[in-house]
Each structure stands twice: as C-alpha cells, then as structure tokens.
C-alpha cells in the first residue's frame, strides 16, 4: 500500500486550472520529487494534501486513510514545510519547536527533548534562544524543516526546502534529508534545483499547467528522453551547421550556442571533433535540467 495516493486531483481558481487531473503514488521510504516551472501547480497540490486548499475533484489517500474521513489523524502523521516562512516571530527558535509540538498533543517534556534533538540535527543549537526575527533566511528555512519533523512524521512534505540557501546550507540539508530517508521516512519534495532532485529523488514527476508530463526515475528518464550526453558548441559557423544537418541527432540553437544531444557513446562526438576541432566544444553528461527544459520549454512563465 502506498503512503500517499493521489488520484485525478483537480483544482481551479476561476477560469484558471491550477491542478488538472494529477495522479501519482509515493511508496514507503521513497523520496518523491514534484518538479515543474513556476505556477505549474506544485504548491496547490501540496496544499490539498493537508486540507488547506479544498480540492474540486479527485481522491486523496495517505497511509491508506481517506483525507475526507480521517484528516485529523492523517495530519498528526505528516510534517509540512511550506514554501513561505510561517514561523512564529513572537517566539524564540526553541519555543517555535516546543510550541508547535503542543498542537500535536505531545507532552511538554517529550516536546522539549525532541526540540533539542532537532536543534542539534540541524545545527541550530547555538541559536536556540534567539528570536526568529533575527535569523537569516537560510536559518529560517532550517528551522522550518526542523519544525516539520517535530511530531516524528512518517511522511514529510517539503515545498522548496532549499530555495534561497547558500551552498553550505544546501549541502547540509541534502545530507539531513538523506539521513531522514535512511530512517525510513517518506519524503515528498518540490524543488527548482535539478541537481537536488537528481541527487535526492528516487522517482519524480514533472508537471506543467497542472498536468503530469513525465514520471519515473530521474537517471532513467534522462537517458530515455534526452540521451547520454550533450555537446555544447559555442559560436558555431555555417560549416558546423552543415555537418550536423547530416547527422541523426537532436540539435537545439540557443542564441550563439548550439546544443547537440548525443544518444550513446562518444562516437559521434569523436567524429564531430575530428572534423571541427575541439576548441569551442564541450561534452557533458545529459542532465535532468536538459529533460526539464525539453519538456517544459524555455519560455519564462508569467
């Protein structure tokens, strides 16, 4: 039985369909990614999972329980880190955790112990008595995450947990998320960092305009849909374009740059560089970002 089962989920705001029939399932112990451009409907989907946003249609089951019947019980077993900070600015760092535990009816002594563990886990112990108002953005994000774990949830739902973090904090969070996964905690994650999704997610979906474009394991998806590697050619001339036209491969022009998607091996790469010289060519492995851009296009979202 999956931990989270989302079935034909739908939500409209007036004439705008934010979530347009999304179906996926997250298995126990899995880290599942929800990717998509701005406005794709990720946050709306997540908000429906904890009953913040009422859904228009579809079925939602968590832990095998129906959200319409057992919302309270479901909510006591999940932890949510919202996209926007919702820390209590009137309270200190530690109080934010201890106070939040009360909403889950966790006894005071247990809550305090749990809070101290989490402060330690997220390297916040030295800031325990600071007011939340004075924390930097990155520290706030870490505290949001710590707070999402205060009830020892079986499923944590993280809406862009690493947005706005410096590389150090991001590395720390990745490590912590990996540790959570080892503890058997199921994770649903949204992120705009493709590298993060590649590293952390066992499976993921890419959504756009409220619809799922693709689902699967990141490495496999990239291999199947983009290829092995990408050859980037800076400032290509007519000769290069001519040669490429004869080859059987996908070519994309980005202003003054050319991207050549190579299916397997470096055979084509060797042949091309022999003819062109390697001066302006860079070969790199195909990435999730390539897949993401291929599926969702390169236009900015409004």
């Amino acid at each position: 039985m999956p931990i989270l089962q989302v079935d034909s989920l739908r939500k409209s705001y007036g004439s705008l369909t934010a979530v347009d029939g999304i179906t996926f399932a997250v298995e126990k112990g899995e880290c599942y990614g929800l990717l998509g451009p701005n406005g794709a409907g990720k946050t709306t989907t997540i908000r429906m999972l904890y009953g913040y946003t009422p859904r228009d249609a579809g079925r939602l089951q968590l832990f095998g329980l129906d959200i319409d019947e057992q919302l309270r019980q479901i909510k006591s077993r999940i932890g949510v880190c919202q996209q926007e900070d919702s820390l209590d600015p009137d309270l200190s760092v530690r109080q934010n955790l201890v106070g939040f535990a009360r909403y889950f009816s966790i006894p005071q002594t247990v809550a305090e112990q749990r809070a101290d563990e989490l402060l330690q886990f997220f390297a916040l112990t030295s800031r325990a008595s600071d007011n939340v108002r004075v924390l930097s953005g990155g520290l706030k994000r870490r505290l949001m995450l710590a707070r999402a774990l205060v009830n020892a949830p079986e499923l944590v739902i993280l809406d862009e947990p690493t947005t706005g973090l410096d590389p150090q904090s991001r590395q720390l969070l990745w490590q912590k998320l990996a540790e959570l996964k080892e503890q058997g905690i199921t994770i649903l994650l949204t992120t705009h960092y493709m590298e993060e999704a590649e590293r952390l997610c066992d499976r993921l979906v890419i959504v756009d305009h409220g619809q799922i474009l693709v689902e699967g394991e990141p490495a496999k998806l990239v291999r199947e849909q983009v290829g092995q590697s990408v050859l980037e050619i800076a400032a290509p001339d007519a000769e290069i374009l001519d040669i490429l036209k004869k080859e059987d491969c996908r070519v994309e022009t980005l202003g003054k740059r050319l991207l050549v998607y190579l299916q397997d091996g470096d055979e084509l790469f060797l042949r091309l560089t022999r003819q062109l010289g390697t001066a302006n060519c860079t070969l790199r492995p195909a990435s999730l970002e390539d897949l993401f851009l291929k599926l969702t296009g390169r236009e900015l979202r409004e």
Partner: peptide
C-alpha cells in the same frame, strides 16, 4: 503577515 494559520493547518487543528 505571519502565516500562523497556514502553519497551524498542517497540524491536527482545523
């Protein structure tokens, strides 16, 4: 401004 209710809605409170 503080999104307190947003945070609380993710707990067993309604």
């Amino acid at each position: 401004y503080q999104k307190t209710f947003d945070a609380l809605l993710a707990t067993p409170l309604n």
